[in-house]
Structure formats: C-alpha cells, structure tokens
Computed example of a mutant assay.
Amino acid sequence: MEPHSRSIPNVTNGEFSDAELFQDLHENEHCPEGTIPIIRHAREDEYYPHGAISAAARNQKKLNIRVDLDAKGHEYAGVGLSGGKYYGARAFLNVWKPATLGNGDLSFAQVGVQAGPPDRLNYIQAGWMVNSRDNEPRVFLYWTSDGNKKTGCYNLNCPGFVQVTNKIGLGAALKPPSTYKGTQFSIPIAVYQFRGNWWLQVNEIMLGYLPSHIFTDLRTSATAVSWGGQVFDAGKMGHHTSTQMGSGHFASEGFGKASYFTHVEYKHETGYFLAAEGLRQYQHVRRRKGRRKIDRLVLISHILAGGIKIHVL
C-alpha cells in the first residue's frame, strides 16, 4: 500500500511558481501500464560517480551529522536537525541551472535523512542535480546502508528503489529553471517513512520507495535530517572548479538572485510535518594553497511568510 499524496500537506507556493517534471520522452508520453520509465545515459558510471554526494553528511560537530568518508572533491553548505527521532524531511527547492564546469563536476540541492554510526551509516538524499555532461537540473535519489562500503547508488542504478509510477522517472529533467532577477521556480521534494518504508514524493507524484529491509538503523527512524546544497569537483580542470552551487550568487543578494529552500519541514512521530526550528548550520570547504574557498558556500536562514527560507549559494 502506498501513502496518499495528502500525507504531505499542500503548501501554497505564493510568490513562487512550480517547476514542471519532463521525461526524456516525447511530451505527454507515458509508459504502458505495468512498466516504469528508466532514464539511461551513455556512461552511467561517469554520469553518476559512486558516492559523489556522501560528503554532504560528513562529520559536523555542531550538528552531529556524519559520514566516515573522504571529502575529497566535495564542498557543501546546509542546515539540519539531530538528536531526536525524525520520520522524514521535505522542502520546496528553488530550481536553477548552475554552471558545471569540467569533466564530471556536479551541483546539487537536496534534502536528507540519516541514522547509524559511521561504520554502517544509513542515509537517503534526494533533490535535483546538474551534471556537467548535459547541464540540466534532474531529479535524483541516493542511498546507502553501510556508509558506501558495499551499498549505495543513484536512482535505479542498483537494486533497492521500488518505483510505483509510470508517469515520471528518476533522472527526469526539471524545466524551466529560475532566472536571475526573473521568475523563480521551485519543486517540492519529500523523503519520509510510511509503514516502515522510505517514500520519495516529487510534487504530487509518489515515485516509489526504499524498502525498510535494505537498511539497519533507518528501519525505525532517522536521527538527523538535513537540507542544503553541494558541489562536487571531479578535479580534472587542473585548478579549483568554478562550478556553481544553486544560482551561484551570494545569499545577501536576496530573492530572485540567490537560490533558496522554503517550507523546510520534518516529519514528526505523530505523522505530521512540522516547521524545522532550531536549525544548525554546517559547511565543508576545501583548502587550496592555504586559502579557504567560501564565496559560494555562505548560508543564511530566516523566517519568511511564516516559513523558513534558506538561501544556499
């Protein structure tokens, strides 16, 4: 049994417009009943490098969100909650088309849930990503049940995610993206537990779920939830990448210029989604020749129209 889309309360988007999901098929075409869309790329191993987003949950003392992994190539900023029991995370993610330079660079905006010690960390992350090979924002899901030791993959690239809809597939493009000083588009993304399984909802579409039995610590609940952005530098440019996170502009520039998350919520044990309060900031930036690259990683959170708005650069 799958949860009804009303399990996640509808939120009026107000001054924002909804981005739309587009298949890599002819417009308005759906898969036949009993089948699902699978979006493939010429080189899946390069398009989705193994563990490329794992460092987003690297050890952060203030937040106690951690992954015992090498953070080489990863730069990220976000906010999160920890120390309790959480049954999901959701937000409206501002959709952009950040410039991704180099062979294999990536840019992400994501929500995440996790549980467990570093040696067997369970986590799920979902949102949109842009790969330097086609520079299109696309829906993604990533999971692991052992800190990326033997498990972990994107989308449908390994057994795990059970898709239940034939309307849209993981890897679907999001169009149109937001424009600087122009119309802003956002997409609601939710990862939450229902009857033990972890479901992915995009807009009003229930894409599918990760069965509880593939996890250890996430079988009961998450112990931390997070929201944020990330850049992966494949290191093939010979210098620090200029790949952008979000819009590539400072949070201080404000709405219409800086990327944002809105309606940042977590799922409570009562089954309701509640506004995330007491968010803690975390970030990881790389050092090059003794200098810290931080211009794209400033993050500010504040209250806007009764909800949390996060500017992620």
Rank of each mutant, 00 (worst) to 15 (best):
R133D: 01
A115C: 03
Q230E: 15
L200F: 04
I8F: 08
D18W: 15
P188Q: 12
I214D: 00
E27A: 10
F108G: 03
N135K: 01
T35P: 01
F92L: 12
E204Y: 07
I294W: 07
P98E: 04
K150A: 12
N13V: 07
Q60N: 15
D45M: 06
H26A: 11
I187V: 08
L200S: 05
R133G: 00
N59L: 13
T12K: 11
N155D: 07
L304E: 13
D217C: 09
V231Y: 10
Q283R: 14
Y87V: 07
N166F: 09
S82V: 06
D70Q: 11
Q193E: 10
F161H: 05
R90Q: 14
N28Y: 12
D146W: 02
G196D: 10
T35N: 09
G208S: 00
N203A: 03
V95H: 00
F140M: 03
Q125A: 02
G160R: 04
Y123T: 05
L170T: 11
V162M: 04
C153N: 01
V139Q: 07
A234Q: 09
Q230D: 11
Y154N: 06
D105W: 04
V130M: 01
H41T: 14
P177E: 04
W96R: 03
T179M: 03
N131E: 03
K72L: 12
K309W: 05
W198L: 05
G112S: 14
D134N: 15
H26F: 07
A115R: 04
Q60K: 03
K257T: 02
D18R: 14
A42G: 08
G83V: 10
I205G: 01
V139I: 15
F22Q: 02
G102H: 11
Q184W: 00
D18T: 07
E75L: 08
T216L: 04
L210Q: 05
L218T: 01
F255V: 03
Y209P: 08
